[in-house]
Computed example of a mutant assay.
Amino acid sequence: MTQQNPLPQEDQQVTLISVRDGNISVTSARALVVKAHKIALKIDTALSEPPAWTDEQSLTMIYTHGERVMRLRGVLREQVDTDRITVEPVGEVKEGDRRDYRRADVDARVYARSAGTQSPTEARAAQVALQLAPTSNAFIPQVVNISGSGLGFTAHEVFSAGELIDLRLVLDQPAAALVNVIGQVVRAVRGEGDALNSYAVRFAELSEADQDIIVYTVFSNHFAAEGLSDALDDFDE
């Protein structure tokens, strides 16, 4: 028997993508109640404003499950309040293709330091033990290239390929959100003169909640920069 892909979990962040009159909206929401034929969602107004949806409007829900990004189409059945809606799933949950791991250039503030260990679990424990306020001057403003699986950034610090680093991001758009990641350096380029060093990392330890924020941020910035482009091939009106 073929195992079906899972629905989002209750209290999980979900990215909602909708197209109306040729305009695409990317909205963050949290799943309140999840059933096979009904998903109740609360719009996360700290990250996004509720769009002007209409009843029976088609939506696509994007959310993470482990290392995968899932995609589920649905129809808006009820607008309970300005920030609460009920969506009826349509069809089966599909594992997102590589386009669901779009990359985007995003304004961010970045803090990075060596994890001091090659164990992602130990690195995460040390990260949790060291509290750092998002307003700290230790964060360096820059434009990062980010996806659901990795990041490109610059830093004064010197890291080596294969090294684990404590990486913290304040993603400034569409709204400020702090993300904590343990990353593994896959490429390191030393800056010449006064230039910062450039790094590419893959995420070695990342919570589903933080991954959901990254996925939402990537989609929001991708469509803001690129417009609809090929989006209508993936997301129906």
Rank of each mutant, 00 (worst) to 15 (best):
Q4A: 15
P6K: 09
P6G: 05
P8H: 09
E10M: 15
Q12A: 15
Q12V: 15
L16I: 13
I17G: 13
I17D: 14
S18V: 15
V19C: 13
N23S: 14
I24T: 07
S25Q: 07
V26F: 05
T27S: 08
V33D: 08
V34R: 05
K38F: 11
I39D: 02
L41P: 15
K42W: 12
A46N: 11
A46V: 14
S48R: 01
P50C: 12
P50H: 05
P50E: 09
W53F: 14
T54K: 05
D55G: 13
L59D: 05
M61S: 01
Y63D: 00
G66H: 02
L72I: 02
G74R: 00
D83N: 12
R84G: 03
P89M: 03
G91H: 02
E92W: 06
V93P: 03
D97G: 08
R99C: 06
D100C: 02
R102P: 05
R103V: 06
V110M: 04
A112R: 03
S114I: 00
T117V: 04
Q118K: 07
Q118W: 03
S119G: 12
S119K: 07
E122Q: 10
E122C: 11
L130Q: 10
A133S: 13
T135Y: 07
T135V: 10
F139Y: 14
I140E: 14
I140H: 13
I140L: 15
V144T: 07
N145K: 07
S147K: 10
S149F: 10
S149D: 14
G150M: 11
G152Y: 06
T154K: 10
A155V: 01
A161Y: 11
G162S: 12
L164F: 02
R168T: 06
R168Q: 12
V170A: 01
V170T: 06
L178F: 00
L178W: 00
V181T: 01
V186R: 05
R187A: 10
A188W: 10
V189L: 11
N197E: 06
Y199L: 03
F203Q: 14
E205H: 13
S207T: 11
Q211Y: 04
I213G: 03
V215C: 08
Y216K: 14
S220I: 15
A224H: 06
G227D: 05
S229G: 04
S229V: 06
A231K: 07
A231F: 03
